[in-house]
Amino acid sequence: MRPSNLSGVGTFLAKQGILVAFALFMIGFTIANERFLDPDNIMGVIRSSAILGVMALGVTFVVISGNLDLSVGSMMSFATIVVLDLHDKIGPTLAIPSMYAMVLCLGALIGFLVGYLKLNSLIVTLGMLSAIHGLTLTYSGGKNMDIADKEGTWFSVFGQSDALGIPVPILIFALLASVLGLALAKTPFGRKVYAVGGNGTAATFSGIRRARVVFTCYLASAFCVGTAGLLQASRSLGSQNTVGQGLELEVLAAVILGGASLLGGSGTIFKTVIGVLILGFIQNGLLLVGLQFYAQYVVTWIIIILAVWLDIAAKRGKLWSPIA
């Protein structure tokens, strides 16, 4: 048995554990393979994490407000399919705002159900996961969606081009992370999100309109999902109906890894970005070390549980759970 009371060092480790773990991973992978720290490699990792990352930004808002969003994966498929389909029908300039409008409508619906009707977010978004998947399949008739003229469209600019030597998906991810990070940390709205997630009743009695805050969080999530769909569509210029399937849980894993509590009231955009990057770099690092692709899932599993365990161990001051 380890000593049950954590020392000062232990508390520091537990509180900043995710950053320490991140640093250790980076050092370990760098020693194991010198190509890991290559700028091209790092750019590649961040670029391929961008889509997951953009979705995680929105889910962070939802999780901090004390709710869950399991519908982001199928909503991302929907966004991708819609924007690809409309691209050929009404042109990219109109397709993009139309797609955003539709996705925001879905977000508003979820926000209404969870915020104003106060239904359980896990079940609502579980139902929406299924419903939006059905919507996507009905919309596309189950067929893959492809852009007819893949060479001649400027639509690929979001997913494939570089600006100032940096891939555009990274720029979009960084821009969105900065804006949302500022909104969460420095605006009255951000304070309200924390208040609602920390103690909904207290927030209500303090005059915060809880329902409106939750509603807005789901709108933010839907906007991020739309952006992720845009990036995905622009990158591949063609897509299956199931492109986002299963992403909802990976996104949630990244958010949890960043230290956001599912109880609500804690977490930051910065930490979520770290969580996303950890997932990306683990995947890349394990491949470079020579492990097979799927080993990353096992490692992710261990890291998620260790991260959350250390986090709550620090809060209760004991390593082991008091459950008899």
Partner: peptide, 9 residues
């Protein structure tokens, strides 16, 4: 999928 999702809600 659509129907089951809506029924669940």
């Amino acid at each position: 999928n659509l129907v089951i999702g809506l029924i669940l809600i």
